[in-house]
């Protein structure tokens, strides 16, 4: 394509529908990077997770699957973090149409397990090993599957690792300026010179 050739056009309607859930996931995923700080909320408490709402069961299992932190692991257990509350707050920031499309994507992900892999059960009814195997099929599946799983990974991973309590096991330092007492330099003084040829 040359610099002046026709730009990409909108997707045809029949393709838009299949892409919307992926795009919604993408929008949600990047918004995850920008969640406000939270101080409460824990796994499975639907009253405190109103924005996840009817998607709670599938979101809980996705979090458990993608992180897969075992007892005795050096990593901090999910229930000791505000991961679910972070996801809930993320969902609260999404425009209605994006939230709706994401919910459809989550439903598709859950129910497709019945036939994909011949589990004959939804994703939420699988044991963890099967859930991980199923998620890996999406990770390497068609573009829609890959896109949705990529988005779900971003949602889960940023919601978990933004918690300071998770940083110890990976030796991440976190914020340093105030901890090290680094002085603010403040505003830069007015420039004293202009370069010849660059000003009257």
């Amino acid at each position: 394509m040359s610099a002046d050739s026709t730009p990409p056009q909108p997707l045809p309607n029949h393709l838009r529908a299949t892409r919307r859930a992926v795009i919604a996931g993408g929008a949600a995923a990047t918004a995850t990077l920008s969640l406000p700080a939270c101080t409460s909320g824990s796994k499975g408490d639907s009253a405190k997770l109103p924005h996840i709402g009817d998607d709670l069961a599938v979101v809980e299992q996705i979090v458990d699957t993608l992180l897969a932190i075992d007892e005795g692991s050096p990593f901090v257990p999910i229930e000791k973090t505000d991961t679910m509350a972070n996801i809930d707050r993320l969902f609260a920031t999404l425009p209605d149409h994006v939230r709706s499309d994401l919910s459809k994507g989550l439903t598709l992900f859950n129910l497709a397990a019945i036939v994909l892999g011949w589990y004959f059960r939804p994703f939420t009814a699988l044991d963890r090993a099967d859930r991980i195997a199923y998620a890996r099929r999406w990770e390497t599946g068609n573009k829609t599957q890959q896109g949705l799983l990529f988005a779900l990974k971003q949602i889960v991973y940023v919601s978990y690792w933004r918690e300071e309590i998770t940083w110890g096991p990976i030796q991440y330092d976190g914020p340093v300026t105030r901890r090290l007492g680094i002085a603010r330099q403040g505003l830069t003084p007015l420039p004293e010179t202009t370069v010849e040829g660059a000003a009257k």
Binding site: A29, A68, P74, R136, K153, Y157, V158, W161
Partner: peptide, 21 residues
């Protein structure tokens, strides 16, 4: 930092934890 790089982690489950570790 880790709270940024986590979004770009390859793999899931044990592969993700191995990467972050």
């Amino acid at each position: 930092g880790a709270d940024f790089m986590a979004a770009f982690s390859p793999g899931i489950a044990d592969k993700h934890l191995e990467f972050m570790g």
